[in-house]
Amino acid sequence: MNQISNINNTFESYQKLISFYQINKDKQFEDIHISITSWFAANMCSAFGGLLDILSSHLNNIKLDYISPSIEKILQKNDFLSYFDREKIADNYHTTIRYLKLKPTDGKYFNSYVINELLGRNELPRMSDLVKEKMAETIYEIFVNAQIHSESNFIYTCGQFYPNENKIEFTITDIGIGFKNKVNRRFNTNLSSTQAIKWATQDKNTTKIDISGGIGLALLKEFIAKNHGKMQIVSDDGYYEFSANGEQTGLFNGQFPGTIVNLQFRTDDNSSYILKKEINNNDIF
């Protein structure tokens, strides 16, 4: 039995998911028994769903034998358990941001998802429209990065609104080639996973050939710093975290088979700082 417990948005929690994957990744035609107890941060359904999909693709049966009732309720509300034959239940408190599994070509579905789950929500009263829009824009940058770079068959997104803590956690996961392989393949180098992530988050750095780029992650970092939020990237065995306190990196024991980007936004941010930097359209080119 695989016991998954106390899953938060911490280095240790990502390590637990990676360890779960490492134990089961070589199984084929087996029953994989799982129990989920204590705490499971709902946005982590994004990463967990990606891992379970890989195990299912090896024709294993995923058996969610026990889920503690309070967690089960949340995972039914956010649609995650609908993918595992359990009924969906209504989210009367509107704190979940639905679990969604998308093909990289399904950009249009992602549009309505962003409107319904983020921009159109009136439970975020303290967030100015501009900050809400900026938050959606940064989420898009990450989604589009996964579309362009990950070479993943699916992209998994999920979030959770924590009204008492004034924050939203939103996670986008792919099960593609990861930062390290992408960068090293492009430049014929041997960067470690954390070096590759750090390089990719720096302004203007891109693996694209003949087209400039590398702005999305840099813009995201700038917004996160102003919003006092947090960004975490897990890719291969690398961990990277950015917040107003600066950068932190770490190495996992074992690899995550793709990339997780977790974003934490403060919802008590009603600033209008972007307008201070208004640009005259005649000065753009």
Partner: peptide, 16 residues
């Protein structure tokens, strides 16, 4: 305004 900031950034990056 937000789009102008992004486009300016894109243009400056492309020039370099």
């Amino acid at each position: 305004p937000s789009g102008s900031v992004s486009l300016k950034r894109v243009v400056d990056t492309a020039k370099l």
